[in-house]
Design a protein around this nucleic acid. Structure first.
Length: 156
DNA sequence: GCCAACGTTGGC
DNA sequence: GCCAACGTTGGC
């Protein structure tokens, strides 16, 4: 029996927002540009087809979970790393020896009511979220309990 | 805009 | 392989 897992992905809405994802063809995008090892490992090893994702706007007013997406392609090399004209080139990574990985995600639904960081911090059951404890991880796991609480607030 | 937290780099 | 310095994230 395969159990689905839950994740949270951060993006600064000025760089890439949930609306941008919705506006993509098929509402699907490559989650390229992650250049941290823990994020790389999570995307390469742990995020599976059908896993669901909280889409979080960081550095925002207010910072908040704004919608849900689903993993539609499992970890594969982030080829933008060896494109010198990309946003996040990294000469350490080559097609022969890729360093960075990404997944594809598809927008599923937009929250009626964004769930702000403030609200997360004061909501019972969410005090152990990685988002609260380690504010710097841009790709992070979410427990089923945390998922259910946030989605029930967001769906309204 | 400030700056704390923390992941990463690089000197030794 | 330790750990200080550096750079970045992201809340406030």
């Amino acid at each position: 029996m395969t159990s689905k897992n839950y994740w949270l992905l951060k993006s600064e809405p000025g760089a890439y927002s949930f609306a941008d994802l919705i506006n993509e063809i098929d509402q699907t995008a490559e989650w390229d540009g992650v250049r941290s090892y823990s994020g790389r490992n999570t995307m390469r090893d742990d995020m599976k087809l059908g896993d669901r994702v909280l889409f979080y706007h960081s550095n925002s007013k207010p910072s908040a979970v704004v919608g849900i997406a689903v993993v539609v392609k499992e970890g594969y090399p982030d080829y933008t790393a060896w494109d010198p004209n990309s946003e996040h080139p990294d000469p350490k990574s080559t097609p022969e020896k890729p360093v960075w990985y990404m997944v594809d995600i598809k927008a599923e639904s937009e929250f009626k009511k964004p769930v702000s960081l403030q609200e997360i911090k004061r909501t019972q059951g969410l005090e152990d979220m990685v988002l609260v404890k380690n504010s710097r991880l841009s790709v992070q796991p979410v427990s089923e309990k945390e998922w259910n609480i946030i989605v029930s607030i967001g769906i309204g």
